[in-house]
Amino acid sequence: MRGFAFFCLVLWAMLAAYTSITIANHGLGLLPIFFGDIAEMGWPGQFNFDFFLMLILSAGWTAWRNRNGGTARWVLTFFAMFGGAGFLLVYLPYLIYKNNGDMAIVLLGPEYPGDPNP
């Protein structure tokens, strides 16, 4: 899993570079463009709507995985919703490292009881 974690961090660096260039060239006016494309009902809007649904799934998984996390649950869910890949590409390697590569705990949370049918 260390390879996957490293791959996520490389992708994050690529995303950070691309985002920095985009902000330098176009500023921070993402939301009006993002939702404006969706309202136009064209292919850019279809892609944005698809991506928006993926953000909702990411936030839902984060909230569910951290179901006993108190305030941290909602902070992480917020970052999953509005941070997208920029959040997950850092959060997943953190969880892999923290849980020694145990993907059941990474994906299902620390309360996961394990395989009911060993």
Rank of each mutant, 00 (worst) to 15 (best):
L11W: 04
L57E: 11
Y91G: 00
I38E: 05
W61E: 03
F82P: 06
W64M: 03
P116K: 12
G42E: 13
K98F: 01
N117K: 15
P116V: 15
P93V: 04
P116A: 14
T62H: 02
W61G: 00
Y112A: 14
N48C: 07
T77E: 02
M14I: 11
I33Q: 11
G83W: 05
N99R: 09
F7V: 12
A85Q: 05
T77R: 02
V75L: 12
Y97V: 08
F49A: 15
E111M: 10
V75W: 09
I38K: 05
V106S: 03
L108P: 01
L107K: 08
A5I: 05
I23C: 07
A80W: 05
H26A: 12
D50S: 12
G69P: 02
N117P: 07
A13S: 10
F47D: 11
W12C: 06
Y91E: 13
A80E: 05
W43K: 08
Q46E: 13
G84W: 08
F35M: 06
L15V: 11
G27A: 14
I23R: 12
V106K: 01
S58R: 06
G3A: 12
T71S: 07
W74C: 04
T19P: 00
W74H: 07
K98M: 03
L28F: 14
M103T: 03
F49W: 13
P93Q: 01
R67H: 15
G45E: 05
T77N: 02
L89C: 05
P93W: 00
F87Y: 09
N68R: 14
T77Y: 00
G84P: 06
L76R: 02
A39F: 11
G114N: 15
A80S: 14
L57W: 13
P93I: 02
G45N: 06
T71E: 03
G36T: 10
V75C: 04
P32E: 11
F87N: 00
G42I: 02
N100L: 01
P116N: 11
L55T: 12
I105A: 07
P113K: 15
L108D: 06
M14G: 12
I23L: 15
G114D: 14
L108G: 09
R73P: 00
P93K: 00
A16G: 03
G109E: 09
G84K: 06
T77Q: 07
P32F: 10
V106M: 02
L76P: 00
N99Q: 08
A16F: 12
D50A: 14
I96E: 00
G29F: 09
L89Q: 03
T19A: 13
A13K: 02
L76S: 01
G84V: 07
E40H: 13
L88G: 04
N48S: 12
A24M: 06
Y112M: 04
L108V: 04
R65Q: 12
L31F: 15
T71Q: 08
A85E: 10
L89E: 06
F87L: 01
F6P: 02
L107E: 07
